[in-house]
């Protein structure tokens, strides 16, 4: 079943200078291995395309069923220099949760409406 990441994960994003951090947390522990397999740095880089000019780094937090991504050079200079409405990267987490993924049937059965 094809779903948006929003149906199986939540998260929060913020800024460090010109870098955005996007934390992605599995809504259920069962979804975490799927996130580990599918949210590769390549996949995330392709998803954001030209919204991210620099590298994408990924860190694992299995204790929270979470992944943390650093998207470098994504805020038009960052802080006060940036001309973006979202100069602090607050909405990058929901931009991430737009991503469409193909869930296997056993996990699809666990998905709830949001």
């Amino acid at each position: 079943m094809k779903v948006q990441l929003y149906r199986i994960a939540h998260g929060r994003s913020g800024d460090k200078g010109n870098t955005v951090n996007v934390g992605v947390i599995a809504l259920r522990p069962e979804f975490y291995p799927f996130l580990l397999d599918h949210l590769t740095t390549d996949r995330v880089r392709r998803h954001f395309g030209d919204l991210v000019k620099g590298d994408v780094e990924r860190f694992e937090l299995p204790n929270l069923n979470a992944l943390n991504f650093l998207l470098h050079e994504a805020l038009g200079g960052g802080g006060t220099v940036s001309l973006m409405t979202d100069a602090q990267g607050k909405t990058f987490s929901t931009a991430m949760l737009r991503m469409e993924v193909d869930l296997p049937n056993d996990l699809a059965a666990l998905v709830k409406e949001r």
Binding site: G14, N21, L61
Partner: peptide
């Protein structure tokens, strides 16, 4: 958990003047 991930860098080394905390623990 959402707040813990806010403005997170490398979770294994959250550097402060007093200690380096490991947020994966």
């Amino acid at each position: 958990a959402e707040q813990i991930l806010y403005e997170m860098g490398d979770p294994r080394e959250y550097i402060t003047p007093d200690v380096v905390a490991d947020f994966t623990t």
